[in-house]
Design a protein around this nucleic acid. Sequence first.
DNA 1: TTCATACTTGGCAATATGCCCAAATCACCA
DNA 2: TGGTGATTTGGGCATATTGCCAAGTATGAA
Lengths: 106, 106
Amino acid sequence: MNKKKKALFEARAQIIKAIAHPTRLFIVDELSRKERCVAELTDMVGADMSTVSKHLAILKSSGIVSAEKRGSQMYYRLRVPCIMNFFGCVESVLKTTSRDQLELLA
Amino acid sequence: MNKKKKALFEARAQIIKAIAHPTRLFIVDELSRKERCVAELTDMVGADMSTVSKHLAILKSSGIVSAEKRGSQMYYRLRVPCIMNFFGCVESVLKTTSRDQLELLA
DNA sequence: TTCATACTTGGCAATATGCCCAAATCACCA
DNA sequence: TGGTGATTTGGGCATATTGCCAAGTATGAA
């Protein structure tokens, strides 16, 4: 694999890594419904606000969400809705996997 | 967030984590074209065979690829082609991100 | 059986992640 | 200017990931 190709796969992996965490996945899911500020997400997630803020920073720097400051609050929104289509595929992996496991038991 | 909901997002994240690595991403991309044995993938990737084998084990245990032994070789194939649709979305994140960066420079 | 090839597994060192706490910013208002 | 609420940043610690080497298993041929 040459250098250029390698860099491309690294860039892609970087984006996927950004959503490869339960909390960040939850945030993306939530933001697909409506924009939210950090305090709201912190409530929903139930972790330290600094933790949530760092998760948001990761999502933002990878280009998945965008942020806008309004007053003293920072509102985050999903910038790439096509991510949501992928969730269906993930769900289908979960389904086929558990189906196969059932077959093993049968 | 209740326990059940949390478990769901953890299960999803587990699957996404499985492809959140440049080498595994490359392997998935390659397997979307045709099935391959470990030696072939090792050649293409350019890492130790044990490393590639472990990457394949991760993809397999998450349900993304399946494996079949034929003779002394183990052939891996993509079990969930819908993953490939997601790659287009990842690409669009890359594009919009770099477009935004160009705008910042302008 | 012995040997070679194909692959997997165990183990370890280096590196990266994730979380909380504490401290620093920032916006707004008195 | 001082104070308060919202958010980000720095730091330290625990845990997880990654990659190589070495050793183990499995298949097929001689």
